[in-house]
Design a protein around this nucleic acid. Sequence first.
RNA 1: GUCCCCAUCGUCUAGCGGCCUAGGACAUCGGCCUCUCACGCCGAAAACAGGGGUUCGAGUCCCCUUGGGGACGCCA
Length: 522
Amino acid sequence: MRRKRHSSGYADPAGQPRLRHPIRHTTTITMIRIGSGSRAVWWACYAATDAFMNVVTRFAPSPTGTLHIGGARTALFNWLYARHWHGTFRLRIEDTDRKRSTQESVEAIFDALDWLGIDWNGEPVFQFARSARHQEVARTLLESGHAYRCYMTSEELQHSRKRARDEGRIWRYDGTWRDRDACNAPQGVAPAIRLKAPREGYTVIDDHVQGHVAIANAELDDMVLLRADGTPTYMLSVVVDDHDMGVTHVIRGDEHLVNAARQSQIYQALGWTAPGFAHIPLIHGADGTRLSKRHGATGVEHYREEGYLADALVNHLLRLGWSHGDEEVISRENAVQWFDLPAIGKSPARFDPERLSTFNRLYIRNTDDTTLACLTTSHVASRLARKVDDEEAALLVKAMPVLKERSKTLAELAQNSLFLFHARPLVIEPKAAKVLDGDALLRLADLVPRLNRLEAWDETSLELCVRAFSEECLISLGKVAQPLRAALTGSTVSPPIFDVMALLGRDECLARIKDITQAACP
RNA sequence: GUCCCCAUCGUCUAGCGGCCUAGGACAUCGGCCUCUCACGCCGAAAACAGGGGUUCGAGUCCCCUUGGGGACGCCA
């Protein structure tokens, strides 16, 4: 079993082999000795045969915008982990921020996940709908003495914070109401409920990625569980929901690492077992800072619109922070088979659009022509500002083999296919017009009768014919090919010219050439 | 500021104490192929942040420094 970069590996009684396993939180492992004496080999067997089915992961976005690259990777890792262990992957919409949450965002996130091929088990959980349950848990905590009412008003809090800032201290709630009797409560102030967190010692997270992380409890103050208006805070909601949803592994961005310690305190107060944590490093922009709007497009939908393939994005995201030896191009099947937590890197990766392009080019090349043409049609239509008819769609499929080698995105693919559909007479680009000088036009005119006489209109016959022509004229093939390209596509860049001619067909080709030669000498 | 995390080519990474004269991929630069563009093929340049330990031996383990990132809400 692969194991790397971990300080929290498990050694068996003999010291090896070492074993790291995701189910350690949920299952007991039985060690079986094979052989005897000092050469005995220990094998780990799982006590329960359904141990592998136990994994439950979740992706928990806030619906305050579309799905961004970082979120997509978090979702992917959770999905992969669940699928790898034949577990369950769930979706939870953290919509408790009523001001910023929108239904459009919820839809956008669903769409983006759908597009990426990340499917979830069961119905999504909406966090806001569960606030009664969160409140109930807070009351339990109050009753068990693990939480208390805090009557400090937000004004008092603000003053306290300001004073701390002015004195150059970092502010923490000082626990004013921690042990104060409720009979001291001021009139007319609704209390917030705070966790009575341990003040001494350390809270330890055994993170699957970050390893053993200890945070001094002195660093963590008594966090608010229920606001003065009775609504639950994120910290409480997450813990309750993860617990109720049976989540076994929380894989999320490492901006939550310290939160894990806080949440772990809530788990302890509740007497619940905390899930395994895996805090993955954030994705950074090209300048090494956290990916944000100013790094350009960060929304998944942008890449979709630009004509990136979901599989390519997934592959790229997968390789950001996770590796499997030297493997670069990894199919979904292999990703599911290979994915595991130990291979996640600890250092943040930068999002390199260039690399995504490379993956996309590769995935485009490996996609079959019909599928690719279907995906491209909408891009073509929008460029043409009209519908693409069946005949044109069929032509697009036929052209795919020569088109897909030359495009990094579907958008580019569409752009490169446009010469097939443009109405005559073609608009000739300036560079192409330069190619069509007097000599070139004369040659094109000379070539026309030969093309007319051709029996078969296919690449081979066309190439034979045009090559023979150039040899007879004692000129290089390029001297004929480039003018042909200019006349037939209006551009100096296109797929191989004989492919172009074959695709366009004899009538269209001759007509386009005629447009040019006649325009030059009417 | 306090706490936490991180550190191998420009970028993504391999590396789990001897297989490392540090490997792969993208990007870059040459060359070949060639009707343009692209593909493909061949080749080049390119990294263990610095300093101390530990060890027979350190990219790999420990410490410090430096640099980067993150968290410090009655946001999520």
